[in-house]
């Protein structure tokens, strides 16, 4: 053991920790663990599968086909003048990102109880890993979307991305913040009440219908549009579609609102998670 490498640090373990003491420096010391967990999830997840990482793009592709047939061809819902395949794929992809982050984070304590009950490390590592892993899968899905987009552009069926496409990282950041906030809040509750974890996936399904995934904001009656925009995910998907498919406009006010809601939920979620994580293993 080299003395230089040794972190001689004195600390105390007490019943309560400051409400605002998120111990972010400790999180930073354990940053390498995030990459190890990501590697585990990405490598181990697809070993002994025939299609491997193709599983990342197959489900959204199938959903796109199904949505195009059911909501597009049969129900004749508007796709805001854009090609239906691209319209549904963009919605499915962006919603899928948010959904996977929330659902994954909501089971933080229950899915990791084997490790959590034996070793201490900052528990926030787990939701952080989940969000980053999901970001990688979504990036791969985005490449598929880009392929389809180029095909439709070559056919002159859509005008393609505009300058607002540079907002994409911001859109992902706001979705991720909202998802961490909502997800860790749910994880704090499901750690104690297992039955609520059934409600999570059902609730997310309902939330999807309240979001402009299968319909555009423009088809919502004018007087109810503000209601649709109260849902922070709506502006994100609308902005994405405007950026890459040229439909509608960027709801700047809505986007700002989404950012504020995401920031608030992230703060509340983290504070409550911080409070609950210290005794969560007594109840799981």
């Amino acid at each position: 053991m080299t003395d230089a490498a040794r972190i001689q640090k004195t600390y105390t373990i007490e019943p309560h920790r400051g409400f605002l003491d998120l111990r972010l420096s400790e999180l930073w010391r354990y940053r390498h663990l995030v990459f190890m967990f990501m590697r585990r999830d990405l490598v181990a997840g697809y070993k002994q599968t025939i299609l491997g990482p193709l599983w990342l793009v197959i489900p959204p592709l199938i959903s796109t086909v199904v949505f195009t047939i059911i909501f597009g061809e049969i129900a004749q819902l508007s796709s805001d003048g854009t090609p239906r395949v691209l319209f549904y794929m963009s919605g499915i992809m962006m919603w899928g990102y948010f959904n996977a982050c929330v659902v994954g984070n909501a089971s933080t304590f229950t899915s990791q109880s084997g490790i959590f009950s034996k070793v201490y490390f900052p528990r926030l590592i787990v939701p952080l890993t989940n969000v980053l892993t999901t970001t990688i899968s979504t990036t791969i899905q985005f490449l598929m979307f880009a392929g389809f987009l180029m095909y439709y552009m070559a056919q002159n069926l859509t005008e393609g991305p505009n300058i607002t496409a540079f907002l994409l990282p911001l859109l992902l950041l706001v979705s991720a913040s909202l998802a961490i906030g909502v997800g860790v809040l749910l994880s704090a509750i499901t750690a104690k009440y297992r039955d609520l974890s059934f409600l999570v996936s059902y609730g997310m399904q309902l939330w999807m219908y309240a979001t402009t995934v299968i319909y555009p904001l423009s088809s919502v009656p004018e007087k109810y549009r503000f209601l649709a925009l109260l849902n922070p995910m709506t502006s994100i998907i609308e902005t994405f579609r405007h950026a890459f498919l040229g439909s509608g406009v960027v709801p700047w006010g809505g986007l700002l609102y989404s950012g504020v809601v995401a920031g608030a939920s992230l703060t509340i979620g983290l504070l409550i998670f911080n409070m609950v994580e210290r005794t969560a293993m007594d109840t799981v």
Binding site: R6, K9, T10, T12, I13, P15, Y120, T279, M281
Partner: peptide
Amino acid sequence: ITAPTSGRIRVNGR
């Protein structure tokens, strides 16, 4: 892994 209900522990080192 779990927090104490009361009391305090000082740890000196890793």
